[in-house]
Design a protein around this nucleic acid. Structure first.
Lengths: 199, 199
DNA sequence: CGTACTTTTGAATCGCATCAAATCTGGTGG
DNA sequence: CCACCAGATTTGATGCGATTCAAAAGTACG
């Protein structure tokens, strides 16, 4: 059992599950899980940054999901094997939850199952928006779309830097640096304390 | 109640829900639902093709999801309002299921809730792959990725034509036509009876 | 038969990928 | 505390691939 939990997680998980969970610290570079492994634990990110990545056809890594707060790889709860890696890219506080505890609770606690469905549905909508974003032809439009849909009143936290963001936006980091620099010169945005601020 | 059902749907839904559902035919151009509406029914596509689309910033429509078989807009089951349109783009057979029937069954039937979670999880993984695909810089790689991940032994059904596919791949239809034409000339693929066949 | 839409090809332009290199940064060990 | 190193950031030059605008041909449907 662990003590310091976010309200979100406490509202989502039943007590029986929380009691079997534990908090852990992970430093940058830690592999939470690897392709091919059987999912034994689910991970909830409290602070920091974790990515889900998959080796592309030429060995390069593609970022599938980027989480600063929330579950990572939750779709693999009932999977036989992970189809991607879970990598910590900036020092993070995590909650580690036994997968079997969640599966057991889902079968016996209908209210929890409902909340889990709710969470998956939200993630689905977020991903549909991400697809919409990636379909935009110009990078500047993708950035604006990102802030409209995921930002907080015109602010978007950069987390582990622009480089990890560039993968999520489907462009090279050079292109993103240039795009941000141009938009700053045009007075459309500015950066302050690790946030992108739009005006 | 309706009669002709796919095994998939019969396995997923409890009898009580199936009894409240009905089959319907929808012709091309039919709006199943519209942005802002409260979701009263869920739709399962038996045959044909339905897309989920959202009006972009300049009024153009972006395709969020394309379904030839399966649920459309299932993430909105518990939403207050749709955040996108459901449009039939080629004559389809659908099953219309009252949303309240599904919600009620999810609360009382844990096994059904488990199957619903399984379905959402699968959709999540599919969408993550779609994001990965859209992040590929070249259209040809996106096409190959599409067949690797969604195709059936090197065959991918085009359904309502290349145009609706181009939106899903995040390119203009001209680009897709040219890419396909080039790959046919190179002997990489060929088209037969509405399928893309890779060699 | 006409109308609307898809498919197809062409030409010009533009944005991003790519390769290269320099600078900055945080963190490590001496 | 400082030298050093790995990785992130930034800028430059060049080429390719997709967008854009345009127009023609094919196709489905009333």
């Amino acid at each position: 059992m662990f003590t310091n939990c976010t309200p979100e997680l406490a509202r989502l998980l039943p007590k029986t599950v929380l009691m079997q969970s534990r908090e852990l610290q992970a430093s940058k570079g830690t592999r939470l899980f690897t392709t091919g492994e059987k999912p034994s634990h689910m991970f909830f990110v409290l602070t920091g940054e974790v990515v889900l990545e998959r080796p592309g056809s030429k060995g390069e890594l593609v970022v599938l999901q980027r989480v600063r707060q929330g579950f990572i790889g939750e779709a693999s709860l009932n999977s036989e094997r992970y189809h991607c890696h879970g990598l910590v890219i900036s020092a993070s506080r995590l909650v580690q939850i036994p997968a079997h505890a969640i599966r057991a609770a889902l079968e016996t606690d209908p209210a929890f199952a409902g909340r889990w469905i709710q969470m998956l549905s939200q993630e689905l909508k977020r991903l549909r928006l991400q697809c919409e974003r990636l379909a935009l032809p110009k990078l500047q439009d993708r950035l604006l779309h990102l802030v409209e849909t995921e930002g907080d009143v015109g602010r978007y936290p950069l987390g582990a830097g622009l480089k990890s963001l560039s993968a999520q936006l489907g462009v090279t980091h050079e292109a993103l640096y240039r795009c941000v620099a141009l938009m700053e010169k045009q007075g459309l945005i500015h950066r302050s304390q690790g946030d992108l601020c739009f005006l």
